[in-house]
Design a protein around this nucleic acid. Structure first.
Length: 288
DNA sequence: TAATCGTGGTG
DNA sequence: TCACCAAGATT
């Protein structure tokens, strides 16, 4: 297999974005919070909310001492608000199980609420400089094209980690850069819909390019329609509770004009089941 | 394992 | 205009 690491490192040195979590001394807590926020969420939307978050809660213990409701409010309109709840739980777990210090061990990170295969390795690598393969959707697309000669990645699989591990150089610091560079390349150049192959540092090594950019199909599941969905109803309910001036709101009045009352009830029930909403005495509130 | 979970920018 | 897409995790 061609050497992908060397051109990736050179390209990254020249063109990588100056993002907050890449600054020297940003800290493991900041990296962890950034990774929670970046799950399925574009960088541009994360940056301002991340800075506000860390200003309010500079350490895991600070967040752990807050009410979950405050975390959900501070999460604002980032989307997937369960992440706010899970980040708060992770902060409590870090305080209680790790003396308030974000763990460096991948298995310890995996044991925290809301942290999976990607986030655990991202924290270990980008916050602590360890040598692991970090594979996100960008990297999977880069590997699918450059290594496998496919137009799109398949469903996420364990073998993705091995594929990336085979690309990493031996040095820990270089490996961390290659991990970041593969993600950056996928985000800026090797994009999902209109890749900029003319600007790609891997062009000479790319199996997809060598094959003439064949359309090898797309196994990925399509996203469900949002308009009219339960997710939209959940979002509307949570927005009301976030913006309310009082802690609790009369349940009957929450999105009372929603076109589908059954869906409205389902949304509220599922939010309660998720722990994002608490119901008491006919009122709804964010969790204390 | 496949479905579910927000929100907003974009080609 | 609207389907696609975005540093995934959970059940």
């Amino acid at each position: 297999m061609p050497d992908l690491a060397t051109p990736l490192i050179a390209w990254y040195r020249d063109t990588a974005r100056d993002l907050p979590w890449r600054r020297a001394g940003f800290g493991a807590w900041g990296v962890l919070v950034s990774e929670f926020m970046l799950q399925q969420t574009p960088v541009a939307r994360v940056v301002p909310l991340l800075e506000a978050w860390l200003e309010r809660w500079p350490t895991p213990a600070d967040l752990a001492a807050a009410a979950p409701a405050d975390a959900v409010r501070q999460w604002a309109n980032l989307g997937y608000p369960r992440r706010a709840l899970w980040l708060h739980r992770a902060a409590v777990e870090i305080r209680d199980r790790h003396a308030g210090v974000v763990p460096a061990d991948v298995d310890a990170l995996l044991a925290l609420t809301g942290i999976g295969d990607y986030t655990a390795r991202a924290v270990a690598v980008f916050a602590y400089g360890q040598r692991h393969a970090v594979v996100d959707t960008n990297t999977r697309r880069v590997l699918a094209r450059a290594v496998d000669g496919r137009s799109q990645p398949g469903a996420p699989a364990k073998r993705d980690l091995a594929a990336m591990a085979a690309v990493l150089p031996a040095d820990d610091a270089d490996a961390a850069i290659v991990n970041a560079a593969a993600m950056e390349l996928g985000a800026l150049v090797c994009t999902a819909r209109v890749p900029r192959c003319d600007a790609c540092p891997l062009a000479d090594a790319c199996a997809w390019r060598a094959a003439g950019y064949p359309d090898t199909g797309d196994e990925r599941r399509r996203q469900a329609r949002y308009e009219g969905s339960d997710r939209q109803a959940r979002g509307a309910v949570l927005r009301v509770l976030r913006d309310a001036t009082s802690h609790a709101v009369a349940a009957d009045g929450v999105i009372a004009d929603w076109p589908d009352q059954r869906q409205r009830d389902r949304a509220i029930d599922s939010l309660i089941a998720d722990g994002l909403v608490e119901a008491s005495e006919g009122k709804l509130a964010l969790p204390r």
